[in-house]
Design a protein around this nucleic acid. Structure first.
Lengths: 262, 262
DNA sequence: TTTTCTGCAGAATACATTATTCAAAACACC
DNA sequence: GGTGTTTTGAATAATGTATTCTGCAGAAAA
């Protein structure tokens, strides 16, 4: 900041050309970034040597030093004047797309804060100790469920994604005491899922649920319940963000497995 | 932020001297402020011309440009990493799992900062205007690719996930001028993918790539290139974070489609 | 009014830094 | 081991920066 301030302070006691230079620099600070001494001289209408002398008079070794100082001064001012405008940025510009980043961050934070670390830990433990894992989802969460299945398989867990339909029930019925059933669900109300969950649980199968954060059948009947905090957005965007949060929880699980594995 | 990130990303495919330069700059970022190209050359132990060529290879006009970019990059990093009380938290406690949140946030921010808004916009446009979309991935990114395919289908795009194997080529060959090929790839080097991409492009098919951020065959031969910034972590965790970043880019695309749809 | 004196401005030029060229060396690929 | 490509640094051209020096304008002294 010092540099630009200094200029303003000295403005009164400057010669004509010096003042022209100072004014130009203060007006067009960011232009300076890619001006050579000659260009600046031309722009202001003075000689190149005057530019250099001006720099030295202000106490810098030469023009490049002045340039840097001005630049720092300018950058510093920016930092201060835009102090807490909020979040670290998941966005560069302010395009509609980048605003999505903000929303996402918000949803993710909310989601993290509603899940008890113990539940996460328990979920990780359940996965680790399971023999076979069935991943079942409502249609809206199928993509997410399949993603989870992939990751589990990669880590050596014997996970199967339940495509729904006729197989769903028969698969679930083959689960045994040491196995795990993962229910991933938007609302947590889908009947067929709640059914197989209850059924499985009666036979000692552990049930892990990942649902929207509210009272819902699926999470109530699960041994371990994880939640997602939905955003307040219009339909389509909300779905997108919801999945994003689901994925984040899943990533946390996978991360937990990796850490525990070591 | 971009400049230093770029260096880190390209480090692997640099020549010996280039890497020496990159390392020195990343270690001694603030020293650079008052180094001339000659001084830097001496400090690193290479010739002055190598310094200039290094700058140009990274995409800058010359050494002064690089210097400025590094400086800005550095200043930018300071702003972000020391906001005021640190990051918004993707973590509640300081459990190992929750630290993952920090890493993820970092990777996501880096990833956002390296993708030009124009490229994102172009990608969205390409998807919107495509008749058929083939989503092809290397094995490590299959889960992510499939996730994208799901979302695209849901939005009414005619997307097909390429399972690899025998079908890959014949599918790609059926693509026509109005179609789109999405290549999702860890390293961007997988031959079969580069092959079908080149082939498709010759027939006027648009190619969209999503790869690690560095020079790689896939992104070079694509019409639109999107990137992911990998983390510096041990193997398994890095994969997890890498996918997380891939998913974030994909979510941005979907978000873009939603917005444009309105 | 004329004569110094002082300090600023710019042309010319010396100096410094940066960019390019080119030939030799290192490297990768048969 | 031979061949073509990339990388490297010495020499040099091009550009950019600092200094010198001359002239000029205005203020103070004669």
């Amino acid at each position: 900041m010092t540099c630009l301030l200094k200029m303003r302070a000295m403005r009164d006691q400057m010669s004509v050309n010096e003042r022209k230079l100072a004014d130009f620099i203060m007006e067009n600070t960011k232009l300076l970034r890619d001006y050579s001494s000659q260009q600046l001289a031309d722009a202001v209408g003075v000689s190149q040597s005057s530019v250099v002398k001006f720099s030295q008079k202000l106490g810098y070794k030469g023009y490049p030093s002045l340039k840097l100082a001005v630049y720092e001064s300018y950058a510093g001012a920016l930092n201060q004047s835009a102090p807490e405008e909020g979040y670290t940025h998941l966005s560069q510009a302010d395009t509609p797309i980048s605003q999505l980043g903000q929303k996402k961050l918000e949803v993710l934070e909310n989601t993290v804060s509603i899940n008890e670390p113990e539940q996460l830990q328990a979920a990780v433990a359940a996965i680790r100790s399971a023999r076979c894992i069935q991943v079942s989802a409502c249609s809206g969460s199928a993509a997410v469920a399949q993603y989870l299945t992939y990751q589990l398989l990669e880590l050596g867990a014997w996970a199967v994604f339940d495509q729904g339909g006729a197989l769903q029930k028969s698969m679930a019925e083959s689960l045994q005491g040491e196995d795990l059933l993962c229910i991933i669900c938007d609302m947590g109300g889908e009947e067929s899922l709640v059914d197989i969950a209850n059924n499985a649980r009666e036979r000692g199968v552990k049930v892990l649920s990942l649902t929207r954060y509210n009272y819902n059948a699926a999470s109530i009947h699960a041994d371990v319940s994880l939640y997602v905090m939905p955003a307040e957005e219009e339909q389509a965007m909300q779905r997108l963000l919801f999945r994003s949060a689901q994925l984040h929880v899943i990533e946390s699980l996978i991360g937990g497995l990796l850490i525990a594995d070591q």
